Simulated assay, not measured.
Amino acid sequence: MNQPQNPAHRHPQPEFPAQDQPHPGWTGPMDPPPDHGEDSYRGSGRLDGRKALITGGDSGIGRAVALAFAREGADVLFTHLDEEKDDAAETVRLVEEAGRRAIAVPCDIREEAECRALVERAVDAFGRIDVLVNNAAYQMAQPDGIEAITTEQFDRVMRTNLYGMFWLSKFALPHIPAGGSIINSASVQGYQPSPHLLDYAMTKGAIVTFTQGLAQMVIDRGVRVNAVAPGPVWTPLIPATLPDTVEFGKQAPIGRPAQPAEMAPAYVFLASQEASYITAEIVNATGGTPLP
């Protein structure tokens, strides 16, 4: 039986062991290990027969969403970087263990041609795309300020977080039937930017605006567009891009970072028929940090 628990104590609290990984980071070395819902998420058929395309599905929030979607009855095609093939294989295993189809596609969403090919691959495999989850993102902390943000880094952040989302939404929309949806991953950073994540925070603010604008543009097609804005979440991106992991998430009122498994239910809800009157909304999942 799923007994209520104090949310502050449900998952590990800082301090965490100091740890560092090269980008993009991997799940295996993380201490404590992230929870994607492997032992906790229980599906109830809310996405039976749906076909989903998820970017960045190899680890973190993307893996948790892929697992939850599969246990709710959806087939999943997801992207990963070439360096993340081992993590991607684990996501495939979890989806297939749930009895659903899993397709892992190495893809650099910074390139328009790869985004177009990705959508074509999903349509060839599934015939349609019921849910597009724009989740892949890039960040790299620069504690030394704006002078330390190179044009190369700035371009990578913009092209990963914004260009990829724009292209995939544009190419996928003709294949999303009425009743389908697009769900974007925003962030608390879009409202309360940390100075060391200036360029990343810029993109998350833009994702909020894009979500709200696109939602109004496509609702006459019967397609809903929403976003989830997480606070700190314990994913491989953290030891790979931040200088200090020891107190990560401690700043949230709840006193700890979220686990990816705690984000996935919001994506399931937004993809489901229960959310049929919800579009142009941002679901804030910040661990208690108030947002506008």
Rank of each mutant, 00 (worst) to 15 (best):
G213V: 13
A201F: 01
E97C: 08
D144L: 05
R159N: 15
L168D: 04
Y191E: 14
P34D: 03
P265R: 12
E72K: 09
A258I: 05
H9M: 10
S187G: 11
M140A: 15
P17E: 04
G49T: 09
E83Y: 05
A172L: 04
R50A: 09
Y191I: 08
P177C: 01
V188Y: 01
G145T: 14
Q19T: 10
L237H: 11
A102M: 10
A122M: 11
D31Y: 03
A113T: 13
Q139S: 12
L94D: 01
G127S: 06
T203Q: 06
A206H: 11
I149R: 00
Q273N: 11
E72G: 04
E120K: 15
G205W: 01
P253L: 07
A64Q: 05
H196D: 06
A186M: 05
V92N: 03
Q5F: 14
A113Y: 07
D58F: 06
N226I: 00
G45Y: 13
D20P: 06
F154V: 03
Y267C: 02
G288V: 11
D130W: 03
T279Q: 02
C115F: 04
M165G: 08
S44Y: 10
V223C: 12
A252Y: 08
I176C: 04
G164P: 06
P12T: 10
L47I: 13
N161D: 12
V131N: 11
S187M: 14
A125V: 11
R71I: 15
T235H: 00
R256C: 06
I254L: 02
V218W: 10
M217T: 15
P33R: 13
F78G: 02
T150N: 07
A136K: 00
S194I: 00
E262M: 03
A52Y: 04
G205H: 02
G255R: 03
I238M: 13
D144R: 01
I219E: 14
H196C: 02
L291Y: 09
A64C: 11
A258G: 15
G49M: 04
A229N: 10
N135F: 08
D35Q: 02
